[in-house]
Design a protein around this nucleic acid. Structure first.
Length: 280
DNA sequence: TTCGATGTTAACGC
DNA sequence: AGCGTTAACATCGA
């Protein structure tokens, strides 16, 4: 469930907490989580410095002093925690970085869906998912020209289209529902039927919603109450996600929840109506 | 006890 | 090629 704003919040937290710290040793408790053998992974990282942390879409790039980068994807429930030595490991701690100052950087993941790939810095695109990743949802990188190009040539339904990271990086189930509600677009609208006016508004809503969510330190839902090192606040700003049966904040109609491409999808049946082809 | 829900990606089939 | 569907990952709670 961590989407771009949550991953960015983690990036900033990790930067404050561990950038500049030296890794003494590494324990891999769940080897399936990484791309190398446990011993290769641990040996490559021991006695190296964490230079800093970058991000691309929902991927973290943990920069290591010796020209290596850990590409880390949290998937559904991955979390990083920093604890002093001696605090008992959680049942779901899978990787422990012992830092030279006595603290431990721990990767916790209830479902074990997260992955870490240790690669040569600059070779991040060799990791599955980064080969085809789309532009970041920012003013500079998500241009209207690009939107018109990719939306114009696909008949896919817009909700699954927005979740496809090769179209735009970083949107997940929560923010996809939110930007469609903000843009008054039905989740089943085929993308090549949207007008340029609708694309402009959708683009602006995507860029601004992501910005607002980052400013609010991301959304904290369900099991994520203590996640990300700090609890996010953006759940208080959600307009449709998780509001099934509650009145639409624009028109009062009860919000509906349907299943679309296997994903829970929330929308207002009055504000968000499927329309015919307005393309061109 | 079994099964569905959950997000993402790989694999599969048309 | 490009589309849509399904399985796999693992755990938890109904």
């Amino acid at each position: 469930m961590p989407e771009l704003p949550e991953v960015e919040t983690v990036r900033r937290g990790l930067t404050e907490l561990v950038a500049g710290s030296r890794i003494k040793t590494v324990d891999v408790l769940y080897p399936k989580m990484i791309n190398l053998s446990s011993s290769d992974f641990a040996h490559a990282l021991q006695n190296q410095t964490i230079d800093g942390i970058d991000r691309r879409g929902k991927y973290l790039f943990i920069r290591i002093g010796n020209g290596l980068t850990i590409v880390s994807h949290l998937r559904m429930e991955g979390k990083y925690d920093v604890e002093p030595e001696g605090v008992p490991l959680s049942k779901h701690t899978h990787i422990v970085f012992h830092l030279a100052d006595g603290r431990q950087l721990r990767y916790n993941d209830t479902r074990k869906f997260g992955r870490m790939n240790l690669v040569t810095t600059g070779q991040e695109m060799t990791v599955a998912g980064l080969k085809t990743i789309g532009p970041e949802p920012t003013e500079e990188t998500l241009t209207l020209d690009y939107m018109r190009r990719i939306f114009g040539k696909s008949r896919k339904l817009i909700k699954p289209f927005l979740l496809d990271q090769s179209n735009i990086a970083g949107l997940g189930n929560i923010y996809a529902d939110e930007v469609l509600w903000l843009s008054k677009i039905h989740p089943k609208q085929p993308v090549n039927t949207l007008s340029v006016t609708e694309l402009k508004e959708l683009r602006q809503n995507i860029i601004e919603e992501i910005k607002r969510a980052i400013a609010g330190h991301g959304t904290t839902v369900h099991s994520y109450s203590t996640a990300y090192g700090e609890a996010g606040s953006f759940q208080n700003n959600l307009n449709v996600y998780g509001r099934e049966g509650q009145p639409c904040l624009r028109c009062g109609t009860p919000i509906e929840k349907i299943k679309l491409a296997q994903r829970g999808t929330h929308f207002c049946p009055t504000c968000q109506v499927i329309h015919g082809d307005r393309h061109g």
